[in-house]
Structure formats: structure tokens, C-alpha cells
């Protein structure tokens, strides 16, 4: 289990990480979200011992992370880096050896992983002969092939098309099943919502959201309403408690100040009988993300 307690780090006068705490258990996925410069990479760097926190502690299995723990870690940096003149096999074996694995142990697994991520290329191909997307997949394989217990992925989905992003999701979920504790950062809330067990959102280095997706969404109440009824948008906008009305063809999307306003809208919409759609939901993660970013600007 990885535990971060009251972690802070500043660079000069800038507070990059401010009193951050969270826990990731084995077999659990934590999605770390936030705008660029929110403190995600700095947090990763402190976990990896690249820099020391000013205050707070990081514990892995109850002790501070040392070089002895490095072999249990898989790390994918935000900016990818491979040796262009190495072959796919040499590259994967080199990084695996740096994680303390023998060539003989990793070599038989390479084809299986290349297949898992559908890499277009042979293990004997040079890295610079592969397309950018395939290079990224090789980098992911090199990060995960030694089946680390703690996996840190900085923006793993960036640059991947939806098909490959789905394959990566499958790969991450497979490692979760194997018992790995996984932290990843992403700007794509769809991926985050789909695979994260819990989410932490950072803004200006501080935790502004924390919990499971349901917990976070429920904090905001069912304030999003989707409606298809024979009403004019002006009438909907005049309802007390409706803060925004957006029309998409015959369909309306309403933002409510309070979820109890939904009943007033329902009664008005069903005055003349049957309506095609009435769906009152909590805001999506994407919407919550935007709201929190907006809050920070105010």
C-alpha cells in the first residue's frame, strides 16, 4: 500500500504541492487529475525519490521508498524516451534488467505483450523504424512487462487513438487484477471515469476533490437534467432554480441550482401527459473538472 501524508513541496516562492494526502491499496487504481501545473508530476517525482518533499511522508508497504524498492516500480514519464537505435527487444530487455529482472525471465514474455498491445512491428525492428504510436506502446510494455507492484503512469493515454487507449485500459485493468497498486494522471476524464477506483483532483497543488467517482459525483447532487418535452426554452429558463438551459435540437439540458428543482420541472413538463425523456443526473466528471477549474479562477 502506498500512503502519502501531508506532502508539500515548493520551488522558491511557488508552492507546487500543498498538504496532499492519499492512499493506494494493492489492486486499486487511483486517477490523479488536474490542470497542467497542478502538481501531478511533482507528486510523482516525490514518490519516485527524484526530489524530497519539504514536509510530509511517503510510505510504501509501511516504509520510505528506497533503491531496494525500485524493482517493484513501473514508471511511465509524461514525455516518452527510448533509445532510437536499439531494437524493440533490446529496449524492453534493457529496462527490465534495470528493474532487476533477468533477460531469460523477460524474453519469452515479449511476444505476448507485443500482441496484447497490438504493436505493428517485429521485436528485431529498431525503435526509430516504428511509428510514434507504436513507440509509445513499446514504452508502455517496457514499463509494465516486469509486472510491478506499484505502477505510476504520467499521462499514459496522451497520443493514443481510442482503440489503443482501450487496449491500454485493458492492460491496466489486467495489472490491477494481478494486485498492482496503480496511479495515473490524465486529462481525459472518460478514461479516468472508466478505470479509476478513486480519484484525486489537484488544483494549484491542493487536493480539491477526493473519493470514488460516485462519491464525488454525489457531492454535487443530481443537478443535470436532460429533458425532451413540448416546452419553450424561455419557460424552462424562468423556473426558479434553473441556472442554465441549453437546447440540442428538441432536447434540453438544464443545470439546476438544487436537485429538488427537478420535481418542479417534471410537473411542468408532464402537465400535458407523456414525455419522451426526463433524466436527472449528477454532473459528469468532465463537468465537475470544469467547475472546479472555474472555481479556482474566481
Amino acid at each position: 500500500m502506498l500512503t502519502l501524508s501531508h506532502l508539500s513541496k515548493s520551488f522558491g516562492t511557488m508552492l507546487a504541492v500543498d498538504d496532499v494526502s492519499f492512499t493506494v491499496k494493492p489492486g486499486e487504481i487511483l486517477g490523479l487529475i488536474g490542470q497542467n501545473g497542478a502538481g501531478k508530476t511533482t507528486t510523482f517525482r516525490m514518490i519516485l525519490n527524484f526530489m524530497a518533499p519539504d514536509t510530509g511522508t511517503i510510505l510504501w508497504k509501511g516504509h520510505a521508498i528506497t533503491t531496494a524498492d525500485y524493482d517493484q516500480i513501473g514508471y511511465l514519464p509524461e514525455e516518452r524516451g527510448l533509445y532510437p537505435k536499439m531494437t524493440v527487444e533490446q529496449q524492453i530487455l534493457y529496462f527490465a534488467q534495470l528493474r532487476g529482472r533477468n533477460r531469460a525471465e523477460i524474453k519469452p514474455k515479449i511476444d505476448e505483450w507485443l500482441e496484447r498491445f497490438q504493436v505493428k512491428g517485429q521485436r528485431t525492428d529498431k525503435i526509430n523504424a516504428l511509428s510514434k504510436g507504436n513507440q509509445q506502446k513499446v514504452q508502455l510494455i517496457a514499463t509494465l512487462i516486469h509486472q510491478p507492484e506499484l505502477i505510476i503512469l504520467d499521462e499514459p493515454f496522451s497520443g493514443l487513438d481510442p482503440v489503443n487507449a482501450e487496449r491500454l485500459e485493458e492492460g491496466i485493468l489486467w495489472l490491477k487484477e494481478q494486485g498492482s497498486a496503480i496511479i495515473f494522471s490524465s486529462h481525459d476524464m472518460t478514461n479516468v471515469a472508466r478505470i479509476s477506483d478513486q480519484i484525486v483532483m489537484l488544483r494549484d497543488g491542493q487536493v480539491v476533490l477526493s473519493g470514488t467517482i460516485d462519491e464525488i459525483r454525489n457531492q454535487f447532487g443530481r443537478t443535470q437534467l436532460f429533458l425532451e418535452a413540448p416546452l419553450a426554452p424561455e419557460i424552462l429558463a424562468k423556473i426558479d432554480g434553473v441556472s442554465r438551459v441549453t437546447q440540442h435540437g428538441k432536447r434540453f439540458e438544464l443545470t439546476l441550482a438544487d436537485e429538488t428543482v427537478g420535481k418542479t420541472v417534471f410537473d411542468l413538463a408532464t402537465q400535458k401527459g407523456y414525455i419522451l425523456e426526463f433524466s436527472q443526473q449528477a454532473p459528469t466528471l468532465d463537468e465537475i473538472f470544469r467547475m472546479k477549474v472555474e472555481e479556482g479562477r474566481v
Binding site: F50, Y70, G81, A142
Partner: peptide
């Protein structure tokens, strides 16, 4: 080269 291509980050998360 290793620093510029960010390979250094992977290497230093593996060895001292």
C-alpha cells in the same frame, strides 16, 4: 542525450 530524451527519468526510477 538521456536527459534530453527523458530516458533518464526511467533509468533513475530504476537505479540510484
Amino acid at each position: 542525450t538521456e536527459k534530453g530524451s527523458r530516458i533518464m527519468e526511467i533509468v533513475l526510477s530504476s537505479v540510484s
